[in-house]
Amino acid sequence: MSNFSKAFSSTLGKKLIMGLTGLFLSLFLVVHLIGNLQLFKDDGGKAFNEYSFFMTHFTPIKIVSYLLYASIILHAVYALILTTANKKARPVGYAVTKGEANSTWSSRNMGILGTILLIFIVVHMSNFWAQYHWGKLPYARYEMNLNDATDVQVTELPFDGKHLVHSQYVDTQKGTEVVVAKDLYKIVSESFKQWWYVVLYVVSMIAMGFHLYHGFQSGFQTLGFDHSKYKPLIDFLGLWVFSIIIPAIFAAMPLYFFFLK
């Protein structure tokens, strides 16, 4: 075995994979969140749909997205491998345990939290990502007045399977910019009108908050990063940004559509 494969087959190495993928996924959340903020824009979904197109067609981002899929799979697969090994390390459990005396609840329940997140990701991706790629999505045509950015005309174009392609041009005669794009926004807003979908999202985001409360700082530790000067900063980011602010904003999206739209 080479030194590399030996390293990755050790407990430390397997955890390194968990840590690296986990932190990469955390970083992705930030990008994803910023992008999804477009949902709150009151432009009939123009910005959001343009953003969706960009994310799926810009080559560097496509490469990163493959990395992302791989990370999700690796993170889940290695979690399973490690959990199995960890269970094997203690086949006979204790009759009485007081975990709360020495560790946080989230640190002890990463597996359950992770499973909730995995289910969420499957539902989430099959509904939006798979639909976007292979589904029969309607298109929307946006006509925006170049002199007044708030003046946007939206025309819904139902799926026809042939003629619709993503396009963008400036109509100099009318003084408007025309964008034709897959209308993911519509799918999103319709999905978020269903109560069970909202519940799934909110619950999953709470799970994500707890998962990241332990996971974010733990990821750094797993990499071996631990410095008395910087650890407090990581802990702070882990708590406020990754386990409270990000999940809260994500959770606000379905709630926004359910209650306000």
């Binding site: 407990t11 430390l12 397997k14 955890k15 490690l82 090994a85 960890n86 094997k88 390390a89 203690r90 975990g99 020495n102 560790s103 946080t104 640190s107 002890r108 990463m110 332990h214 700082q217 733990s218 530790q221 797993t222």
Partner: peptide, 8 residues
């Protein structure tokens, strides 16, 4: 087993 940083 492997360390998951629970700190226990």
């Amino acid at each position: 087993g492997s360390c998951t940083n629970t700190g226990a």
